[in-house]
């Protein structure tokens, strides 16, 4: 339960920190940390404009998207304390629940009949398809290493106490950070601040959403970031005591947000046609982790 509460707590500040980092890096003062949250509350109170082309799918999709991320967050443990839901093979459930949210997001974009939104939807479907194996190979490798198949057990059984182990931990963190960037449509793959619809992925999909729905979608994005941050943190706080785990957790989440801000300040978005290759390359990093695990277990003799 602590895990979920912490994710919700972190989600309130996460995007604020990213924006603040970007402002500071650009030499501006920037808005307050809570500004994104205030924006969302403002959106919640606003009325909406719906396209005449849309059906109930368009109204249902933000709800399903939000629920899927909440459900997935319930599966993420917090170091020594169990998640609300946890069972053998729960990370498969995790990936598929998120997938349902994405499914609805895509068809909701197609529901408007706009060619721009179709373009975004098509890209989203393609990129998330490519990102899928990286996550599964990563988790499969750690299942092999630890002999467990649930988030909680895997995180608590990882002891990265050799040089190969440190390398594995770093690579796993890298894969998860990049996955989080892809899933949240952030910089190397997608630029949330671009003003040209043709180069957008996620932003163009929600062009027609307004009011409450838009607020819900935006908040879901924050929650998703915090959720991935929590996953990354879990790699390092597995067996620790609570009073040690909590500061490390918050520190990791904070540095994750700062890192995202810095990446967005100093990097340009990839060319759209390079994205697929880039995302697929993540799977090969996951494969490196797999071979590292084989090395540690002494299977490659």
């Amino acid at each position: 339960m602590i895990g979920f509460i912490l994710i919700v707590f972190v989600s309130l500040f996460f995007t604020g920190i990213i924006i603040r980092t970007k402002s500071l890096a650009a030499g501006r003062k920037g808005p307050g940390i809570l500004q994104p949250l205030k924006d969302i509350i403002r959106l919640f109170r606003k009325g909406s404009v719906y396209s005449q082309t849309t059906s109930f799918i368009f109204r249902l999709a933000p709800v399903v998207y939000f629920s899927s991320v909440v459900m997935a967050s319930l599966l993420v443990p917090f170091g020594p304390s169990r998640a609300v839901i946890g069972f053998e093979g729960d990370f498969i459930f995790f990936a598929y629940v998120l997938g349902l949210g994405k499914f609805f997001n895509i068809i909701s974009a197609m529901d408007t009949g706009s060619s721009f939104e179709g373009m975004g939807a098509s890209r989203e479907a393609l990129f998330s398809m490519f990102a899928e194996p990286a996550f599964f190979i990563l988790m499969g490798s750690f299942a092999l290493l630890t002999g467990f198949t649930s988030f909680y057990d895997i995180f608590n059984a990882i002891h990265l106490n050799s040089y190969t182990g440190y390398a594995l931990g770093t690579m796993a963190a890298l894969v998860l950070v990049l996955l989080a960037m892809i899933e949240n449509s952030r910089m190397p793959v997608d630029d949330p601040k671009t003003h040209l619809e043709l180069t957008m992925v996620h932003e163009v999909m929600i062009l027609d959403n307004s009011g409450f729905d838009l607020g819900l979608i935006l908040y879901t994005g924050y929650l998703k970031f915090a959720m991935y941050g929590a996953l990354i943190a879990n790699f390092f706080i597995g067996g620790l005591a609570l009073n040690l785990a909590l500061p490390i957790y918050l520190l990791i989440q904070f540095s994750f947000a700062v890192a995202v801000g810095l990446i967005e300040s100093f990097m340009a978005r990839f060319r759209m046609s390079h994205n697929a290759q880039f995302i697929f390359a993540l799977s090969s990093v996951s494969f490196l982790i797999f071979f590292g695990v084989l090395l540690i277990m002494g299977k490659l003799n």
């Binding site: 909406s48 404009v49 005449q52 082309t53 408007t112 009949g113 706009s114 721009f116």
Partner: peptide, 14 residues
């Protein structure tokens, strides 16, 4: 959202 204003219009064509 029961009390908010809901409008219907064409899809935003950029």
């Amino acid at each position: 959202t029961r009390n908010t204003v809901v409008l219907h219009n064409e899809t935003w064509g950029c």
